[in-house]
Write a protein that binds this DNA or RNA. Structure first.
Lengths: 134, 134
DNA sequence: TCTGGTACTTACCTAAAGGTGCATACTTGT
DNA sequence: ACAAGTATGCACCTTTAGGTAAGTACCAGA
């Protein structure tokens, strides 16, 4: 997200003071500009590369592919190559991926419910930050 | 997030084809390496700057402050300055922020539940990606 | 008096994430 | 014959998020 990022570097005494919950692990996976969007979209079922690219508006090929590879490496989605020509490939959530994508739902809902408020806020956001600095 | 990042640049025809759900809005807010952690931690109640800094292990002052300012600008938390000397300041979630932080809970739960699996995967992740490339 | 804690601010630098544009090899539609 | 769609790969470049290290003004305790 953009982002969300890595997380804690090896905590020796396991879950010592420093606040750590499962969120750390989750963030490692969904960190990437478009990853949450990709995952959430895949809830709709197997999706071809092209579809995905059109759905996740503005993502570049390079990054989309890269994200897909990483998500596959993380075991949340699977790439299916139909070995046809012209190429035909689609992506599916694994069981793990599905549960993850479902965990994103509340965020989506929240965004939808507060859409109006957010737009107001985003409009003033920059001036707000500036006047604070001044 | 990442990071998670910006999102769609002005979709003219409103919610035209390009997949957009509330997730976009939400991501705009929680995008930042430590933001989800900050929000989630604040569910525990008003927290002083120092506490927060110790809780969100490894965050630098610069970034922590910066994230807090932005989250405040986004209306999800409030800064309370007690005007004391030495300085005493704490941060609280707004109503909006609380609902957002709660929406993060499933992600946290997911991470906790799949912690073991994730550790296995993370261990192989890099070699996995490499062998794919080769 | 010196160290440490409070909550920051600022200037500077770097690593990495993401974007751009070109290329591939084949097929279908015009 | 030619453009377009299919799913990528690669080299290169820019942006920016984040980290580092210093400083501030004040107070309490050793």
């Amino acid at each position: 997200m953009s982002h969300l990022r890595q997380a804690s570097t090896a905590t020796p005494t396991s879950v010592a003071p420093g606040f750590t919950c499962g969120l750390d692990a989750t963030l490692k996976i969904i960190s990437g500009k478009w990853k949450p969007l990709i995952l959430y979209f895949l809830l709709r079922g197997p999706t071809r590369y092209g579809e995905l690219k059109r759905a996740v508006r503005d993502v570049s090929d390079k990054v989309l592919i890269q994200h897909l590879r990483e998500l596959e490496a993380d075991g949340v989605l699977r790439r299916n190559d139909y070995k046809e020509v012209p190429p035909r490939v689609d992506y599916t959530l694994t069981q793990l991926g599905q549960s993850l994508a479902q965990a994103l739902e509340p965020l989506c809902t929240w965004g939808t419910e507060n859409m109006a408020e957010m737009q107001k806020i985003f409009a003033e956001r920059d001036s707000w930050l500036r006047e604070k600095q001044a």
